[in-house]
Amino acid sequence: MARYLLKQLFNMAITLFAVTFIVFVLNELTPGDVVRKLLGPYASADQVEKVTREMGLDRPVMVRYAEYMANAARGDFGQSIVFRRPVSEVLWDRLGNTLLLAGVCFAIIVPFSVLLGVLAGMRERGWIDRSVSVFSSVCASIPEFAMGVFLLAIFVVQLGWLPGTSPLRDDTGWPIWTQLVLPAAVVVLYDAGYLIAMIRTSMVEVMRQPFIRTAVLKGMSFRRVVVKHALRNALIAPFTVILLQINYLVAGLVVVEMVFAYPGFGRMMLEAALAKDIAIVEAGTLVAVSVTMLTQVVGDLGYRALDPRISI
């Protein structure tokens, strides 16, 4: 166990270094000068050169990378060009917003899809199965932006129940929680559609196993068989996929954030990338990779807890 954690920590460090280095070098290689961007098209060549030297950008890549990592370790990710603030401020701000949305979504998605997936899979081709399958494939096949626009049309334009944008500010006249409803609904419906299908398939597979027959022929009621013998087995296979959703929820919500003008992490990364704001992209990558690696470790541990056949 301790051995495993140590190994994972080591892997994590290696991966973090590799990824940040690749991003660092890639940014270095892409055309377009950061300083030129910063100073605007009318700055003179002298000015550009001066600022370049002041920012230390004339030094070798390796030196700057080492310096960057040293600063990052102290929580200093440099200055954002786009936001004109320290990166760390922007980053924690946006990350906080995203974690709020992601947390709400995750807390709904998991129980919702487990419930529907299990109900659908316990009796293959029964009426629950058919209805849930239609629901889940409809949800999973409508793109997020389409679903967003669709819900906007109903709840904002037609009914006027909810705000059309979610900037998470209370000066808009809408309480913060109402601003979360629509973005969360889009994410939940889209993502749960996919998860339900996964869990249903796994449940169907488990219900065909001979040990389910053993349980029934012990004299157990169907409900008990499902809860006591099928449920845990049916969650083993989808478990890793469920955890993968955390990565998606943290770094992949860019479409939803754009539709609802939500000040989240994904949008920040997109804006920074478009504007060649290297400092933000670097830091954001670091965060995204850390989240991925952490969920992987949590996934392994949870996997072991679910399935005694796995040893790590």
Binding site: F211, R213, K218, G219, P308
Partner: peptide
């Protein structure tokens, strides 16, 4: 259903081919 359940496992029980898959792996 209830009467059947009180028979199964109680008055009549079964042993299957392939014991590995007849036992729940996580219990």
């Amino acid at each position: 259903d209830a009467a059947l359940r009180s028979l199964r496992g109680n008055r009549v029980a079964m042993v299957y081919q392939d014991p590995m898959s007849s036992l729940n792996p996580v219990v």
